[in-house]
């Protein structure tokens, strides 16, 4: 089968190649998905550049990407929750990475039926970003009337996080640039802050939760705007000690700066690393079918132009998700 593979870490132009490879092997708990569409995410870019080698050691060459939608064409002996012909989507587990291919084998617990009211392209755009948004806000125990600041409302994760937070009845502040203000508002955000003309720190004050999707200074600044006793959840900031242990880093210590800020503000800090989960995807499926959430797609590329898609991803300018149509 045809697959887009990473042959060596490095620049996008030089490190990706289309290869003819065997269909993946299937375990008793796996379903084989004939891929209709795959979506790419910032983590894929980090993998290509080699920035995650220590955290996620991956033997090369490897097929790229985690997000998939398609049709179940085979199932393992122990699979009871899917049938041949089911239309599904998934954020595949790390060890099954490689959705930029004609087929991918996925453990059934990471798979969900796709929402019936969206296309394969839209369905592929949902899992990683949707699970990240949902699991982050659920970890923070977001509830009705909470005030939350979600950074980068026009991003793949931010755009879904806004909608998930609204479905919970929260009051949502979000940041974006001038060009995106209107459509981000249409997602339901209560106060869209144009970071080019406004200082978000003077507008979103004493919020219950900050969802940091930007990192660096934004992580530390989160403690300026979160209320005492509030929570900062980040998907790009430094690892917290518990998360570091998960990656086998037993002697890791949270930076003094974050630890001090967290202690002084009495605000918890947590790094969230999304985990694949079909049951969580089912909850998102229901929200999408009820139009409480809708996927936002920046652009769909044909498979043969997948390398172009990665360059677009690397530009950081995408509004919503970048999807690759496979079949």
């Amino acid at each position: 089968m045809k697959a887009l593979q990473l042959k060596a870490y490095g620049e996008i132009n030089e490190s990706l190649i289309f290869n003819e490879i065997p269909k993946p092997n299937m375990g008793p708990n796996d379903v084989m998905i004939e891929v209709k569409a795959a979506a790419i995410n910032p983590i894929d870019k980090s993998i290509i550049l080699g920035n995650l080698q220590s955290l996620l050691p991956i033997p090369l060459p490897c097929t790229l990407a985690y997000d998939v939608s398609g049709t179940v064409v085979e199932k393992g002996n122990d699979v009871g929750n899917f049938e041949i012909g089911d239309l599904v989507h998934s954020r595949v587990p790390q060890e099954q990475m490689g959705t930029l291919a004609e087929y991918v084998a996925v453990t059934n617990s990471a798979v969900s039926k796709k929402p019936g009211n969206v296309s394969f392209e839209e369905a592929a755009s949902i899992p990683l970003a949707g699970l990240t948004a949902m699991q982050s806000l659920e970890y923070a125990q977001l509830k009705e009337n909470d005030r939350i600041l979600i950074h980068a409302g026009s991003g793949g994760v931010g755009s879904l996080a806004i909608q998930y937070a609204k479905s919970k009845g929260a009051f949502v502040y979000t940041t974006t640039s001038t060009a995106n203000v209107e459509w981000v508002k249409a997602l339901g955000a209560d106060r869209v802050i144009d970071y080019k003309t406004e200082d978000y720190k003077t507008i979103a004050n004493d919020v219950d939760i900050v969802f940091d999707t930007l990192g660096k200074a934004y992580t530390t600044e989160s403690f300026e705007v979160v209320k005492p006793g509030g929570k900062v959840v980040s998907i790009v900031g430094p690892l917290d000690e518990e998360s570091a242990q998960m990656f086998g880093m037993t002697d890791y210590k949270l930076s003094d700066e974050i630890a001090t800020l967290s202690r002084e503000k009495n605000a918890a800090y947590k790094f969230i690393f999304m985990h694949p989960n079909g049951a969580h995807l089912e909850i998102i499926k229901a929200l999408i079918e009820d139009e409480k959430m809708k996927p936002i797609i920046d652009k769909v590329y044909p498979f043969e132009e997948a390398i172009e898609a990665f360059k677009h991803l690397a530009s950081g300018r995408a509004k919503g998700k970048i999807v690759i149509k496979i079949n």
């Binding site: 209709k36 019936g116 394969f120 392209e121 369905a123």
Partner: peptide, 10 residues
């Protein structure tokens, strides 16, 4: 009863 179109929608 429903059908699924080419894009995957029901």
């Amino acid at each position: 009863s429903y059908c699924i179109d080419k894009t995957g929608k029901e």
